[in-house]
Amino acid sequence: MTDQDTTGGTGDGPTPGELPSRTATGSSLPDLPPDAARRLAELEDRPGHKGMFTSDLSVNEFLLIKEVGFHPLGFVMGSSIYHLGIQTRRWSQSQELAKLTGAMYNARELAMNRMDAEADELGADGVVGVRLDVNYYEWGSDTAEFIAVGTAVKAEDGHSYRNNQGKPFTSDLSGQDFWTLMQTGHVPLGLVMGTCVYHIAHRGLGQTLRTAGQNVELPNFTQALYEARELAMTRMQVEANELGAAGIVGVRLEEKTHMWGDHTIEFLSLGTAVARAADDHRIPEPRTVISLDG
């Protein structure tokens, strides 16, 4: 799939190799707002002040994270409110909307970078249970808030789990999945994503009339949707490659029209890039059970 040929695409979007950079641009805000720094400072141990952690992990997740040798440091978050102006689209042509793709990507990056910065401030090795959300507010026309939250964790054995970019790893796995992943001898490297905003062409009147009453394949539509999904997934894989990942687990593809109407769709692909921790790892054999609770 990495060899996906994009020249066949109709859009003017970036090719998979030309991704928006991981260091998001276009913001006048510092990476770590002073209020956040103050809150995070209160979490840390220092003479005369007992530190503590905060976390949105459930008790189950908390205990499982502890079980694999991590201690939660603090609940971390990042957000960015973005104005998403509309890009002109050609009525009858399917194409990627590169500006919107860039904006969606950039806004999420800003939110994630701020979350990373909070985790970094805490000296974290990683962030688990990351959730990315998009909020819309009544008062903000064409604006959306991108928010990333998670729990910063640190390895208790002093070993560093930071990724090859020197950043804390991020992962959208639940505590249960995180524990299970570690049992399989893998470590998470980072939450990777790829996005593509695509305009699906409206059909001309002639076309509609010709196929009216028939259940025929609509090749243009099939191709456009195919293309958009492949672009999103390819970009996600490029991110994973940059992290030196062996693979991506828990990949999901979300399709949202946000506020653009039915024909403009964002295809967002998300997953956790992982690497093998050791080659000789033996996976414990799972037991089979029928549960009695419910």
């Binding site: 913001s27 209020d35 409110i81 950039n106």
Partner: peptide, 21 residues
């Protein structure tokens, strides 16, 4: 334009941080 709105971002960010703090 497709751009971040810093004053709004800041207001909401600070409110969240305030609640957490």
């Amino acid at each position: 334009q497709n751009t971040e709105l810093p004053h709004l971002t800041e207001a909401l960010y600070l409110a969240r941080e305030g609640a957490m703090a």
